[in-house]
Amino acid sequence: MAYKDMTVLIVDDFLTMRRIVRKILRDLQFENIIEAEDGSAAVEVLSTNKVDLIVSDWNMPKMTGIELLKHVRSQESTKDLPFLMVTAEAQKENIVEAVKAKVSNYIVKPFTAATLEEKLGKIVPK
């Protein structure tokens, strides 16, 4: 599927961060972008929308990225959904935990469009 036909869900509690990720995704020709401000909002989006890719922050109030990931993987309809976790370098130690929870891949902040494209190449065959 071409990026422009995919629906991507950005999950981050920080509005500016969502804007930045949205901008970078647009540069990669993504057109259908939905935003959610934390894990629980994302769950709601997932229940009503068909999403092809999740780009989620790790550290969020209410429901964290890892909790969202576990939820996504526990649902039959989304258990194979490409899930890209955005982390900070300081959190790298926790990435093994995310891998065990079956994250598709992760990306460290700050990243460029090129890095994101490379990571997406690994998890969503273009």
């Binding site: 509690d13 920080f14 961060m17 930045i20 922050d57 550290n59 109030p61 900070a88 902040k109």
Partner: peptide, 18 residues
């Protein structure tokens, strides 16, 4: 602690981008 940690974390993230 988390609630104090988070703003610094988010600000750091965005400041990195900007």
């Amino acid at each position: 602690i988390n609630a104090v940690f988070r703003p610094f974390h988010s600000i750091k993230g965005v400041a990195g981008f900007l």
